[in-house]
Design a protein around this nucleic acid. Structure first.
Length: 396
DNA sequence: TCTGGGGTCCTAGGACCC
DNA sequence: TCTGGGGTCCTAGGACCC
């Protein structure tokens, strides 16, 4: 008899908002979770959007990912706080560490979510009791709440953690799928986004149950074979993907900049390209990678995107080389006039190989570029150290 | 006073090879 | 006079996630 899998999905409630609340309360500030409040990037940037909202803010109709300006119109007294990524990283580490004590078979799914495989645990007690202990321990130790979803696989555990929030434990076993999952709107199913929702609705599929009842064949015409198979399995509560304990190496690195006003001069575009190239190449070097594929994209006023990528004969980690590739490609895809909202630069086909051998035919200029990068990296590292120091000092 | 930033994976068409 | 079939690589675009 194959034994039943027991998977937990742990999801921090309004993560960025909760974490900032904890941070502010250490300085004697009120609990921003109790008032209409949101977290955004730079609150002074008129193009900032909301990355997390408190429950009172959500009650005022404010949604994640909407522009801050729009939210302020809905709720003039709204408290807008800038997120602190350094702090979020620490909070994330803290709750992951606690989860790992409950099972070493842990997969971090994002900064604020993880799966743990509890199958091998010697169950002398109800999984729900263990989950309640886990969530309480996180709350009492770290000061923020989580939801724990329990299921027979990752999909069901994740769906379960989305049920009533905050600070709750829910189960979604295979035998509960019909009762607890099929009545839900089809959009609630993992991997069903806006576009897929539209397609499914046109065919009269409105609930997860509707989806489960369709044949793979009929879904294939809508969304392609592979996705159709997955949707069909998931809607029926089936998912055999394992909890992946190995941390995956990055497959791509990218950075983008949105301008506060759409821009249209070559000089401005070039300046932005330079900034993102520096960021991407620096992160590439810090991770000890070389890239052999550079890509750029441009987002226009109407949010349409054009992109171009190019593979290079030799892997590189030099900012100037990456920047030059990007410049050439931007020339190809941009008409030189249309105002641009955003530019981005990415690198992929990452390897750890050392490309020094080709130095025989190397452009002597490259050594100068390398030196430039070394100085850039050094300065970045110093800034980083100073920042961390300031952080530690503040904690005392 | 409208829409960030950073990722992963899939698909489709064309080039090219045998 | 007409035109196979399979495989791989590259590029552009699009969907989804947090």
């Amino acid at each position: 008899m194959a034994h039943r899998r027991v998977i937990f999905h742990i999801d921090v409630n309004s993560a960025f908002l909760s974490w900032t609340a904890v941070q502010l309360m250490q300085d004697g500030h009120q609990d921003i979770r109790l008032v209409p409040s949101v977290i955004s990037g730079d609150p002074n940037d008129r193009r900032s959007i909301i990355t997390a909202a408190s429950i009172p803010a959500k009650k005022a109709g404010i949604r994640t990912a909407e522009p801050v300006s729009m939210a302020l119109r809905k709720c003039p007294g709204l408290l807008v706080v800038r997120g602190d990524w350094e702090w979020y990283g620490r909070c994330s580490k803290g709750f992951i560490e606690i989860c790992r004590r409950y099972s070493p078979v842990l997969q971090q799914f994002s900064i604020d979510e993880c799966f743990i495989d509890m199958t091998m645990r010697n169950w002398g007690e109800d999984p729900v009791d263990v989950a309640v202990r886990l969530k309480n321990e996180i709350r009492e130790t770290l000061g923020f709440t989580v939801n724990v979803g329990i299921g027979s696989n990752k999909l069901l555990a994740k769906m379960a953690s989305e049920f009533e929030k905050p600070d709750k434990v829910h189960t979604l076993w295979q035998e509960e799928v019909q009762e607890k999952m099929w009545p839900l709107d089809v959009r609630e199913l993992l991997w069903v986004g806006k576009k897929t929702e539209e397609k499914l609705r046109m065919y009269g599929i409105h609930t997860i149950g509707d989806l489960a009842a369709r044949s793979v064949g009929s879904l294939t015409r809508l969304v392609g074979k592979k996705f159709a198979q997955q949707l069909h399995e998931n809607a029926n509560g089936r998912d055999d993907s394992p909890v992946e304990t190995e941390v995956q190496e990055a497959k791509s690195i990218s950075a983008e900049r949105t301008f506060s006003n759409d821009i249209g001069t070559e000089k401005e575009i070039d300046r932005a390209l330079f900034i993102v190239a520096c960021i991407v190449a620096h992160r590439l070097r810090r991770a000890d990678f070389h890239t052999s594929c550079v890509s750029v994209f441009i987002k226009y006023r109407d949010f349409s995107v054009v992109q171009k990528q190019h593979q290079m004969a030799h892997p590189t980690n030099i900012t100037a080389v990456i920047l030059n590739e990007a410049r050439a490609m931007v020339k190809d895809i941009w008409d030189g006039e249309s105002p641009i909202r955003q530019v981005g630069l990415g690198v992929s086909k990452l390897t750890h190989e050392n490309a020094v051998q080709m130095s025989l035919f190397e452009d002597p200029q490259l050594e100068y570029y390398r030196e430039w990068d070394r100085r850039y990296d050094e300065e970045k590292a110093q800034n980083e150290d100073a920042r961390l120091l300031a952080y530690e000092r503040k904690k005392q």
